[in-house]
């Protein structure tokens, strides 16, 4: 990776009181946080909690109704939950198209790098529409990584991947973090947060219920004063108890 931590701003992304509603439904309620360079943040929360909405706002795809967003936006790499690819084009053609649209200095080199990274070199000339769901997702992720962005936003990136591909992706994402790239991802797999995130953000019904390290979340549940509070065996049950404590 050619990018280095020194070229990146101190706080690549700051959110202040972000709110978003769809008609009467409140999707995000006054979210405020700051991300540090090289930080990996895992967003968890039930279906409909607002994870995709938040990542879309951070990516500049969706505008918030209220609040401010400093940094990120269009410069962030974005991997949407639904693969965003042309199914009639081959893997390499999709990568090359977006490399050119991103106006990369060396689009062909970027394509080669991503074919290598996703392990799809032998499928490079296959139409994306004929790939398995997991392989399609690998191309989708690769497009988000093409420009080597300072902030990477991934919406459930591993949902369709097999265990070895997940492992491969996390290795790659970890190496990015070492280079100073800030990574924000959402997931329903709490063990991924436990292993790969520096910080966990727990969303429920558009509210940021918790923001801190996985260990801090477990301690918060253990110290909770509500009835049923007590020490949990793992992060997943800690999460569930935390949600229950807060009426979700």
């Amino acid at each position: 990776m050619s990018t280095t931590a020194s070229t990146k701003p101190r706080a690549p992304l700051t959110a202040r009181a972000l709110s978003k509603r769809f008609g009467a439904r409140v999707a995000l309620r006054e979210l405020s946080f700051e991300l540090a360079p090289g930080e990996r943040v895992g967003i968890v929360g039930p279906n409909g909690a607002g994870k995709t909405t938040l990542l879309s706002i951070l990516a500049g795809v969706l505008a918030p109704d209220h609040g401010d967003l400093i940094g990120s936006g269009r410069r962030a790499g974005w991997v949407p939950q639904q693969p965003s690819l042309y199914s009639k084009l081959s893997v390499a053609e999709n990568l090359r198209l977006f490399a050119r649209l991103e106006r990369l200095a060396e689009p062909d080199a970027a394509v080669e790098r991503m074919l290598e990274q996703t392990g799809l070199r032998d499928r490079a000339n296959d139409e994306v529409g004929r790939l398995s769901g997991g392989n399609r997702q690998r191309v989708n992720i690769a497009i988000g990584l093409l420009a080597e962005p300072p902030v990477l936003l991934l919406d459930e990136p591993t949902a369709a991947l097999d265990p070895s591909q997940r492992e491969r992706l996390w290795e790659f994402i970890s190496s990015l973090g070492d280079d100073g790239t800030t990574v924000v991802f959402s997931t329903h797999d709490v063990s991924e947060v436990e292993r790969h995130a520096h910080r966990v953000m727990l969303l429920a019904e558009g509210e940021l219920l918790f923001s801190g390290t996985p260990g801090e979340l477990e301690r918060a549940v253990a110290d909770g004063s509500a009835p049923g509070a007590g020490r949990s065996a793992d992060l997943e049950s800690a999460l569930l108890r935390f949600l229950k404590l807060h009426g979700h």
Partner: peptide, 13 residues
């Protein structure tokens, strides 16, 4: 329908 529009609309086109 290919979900590409949001990606394009992020300043690419």
């Amino acid at each position: 329908s290919e979900n590409a529009y949001p990606r394009l609309a992020r300043g690419l086109v």
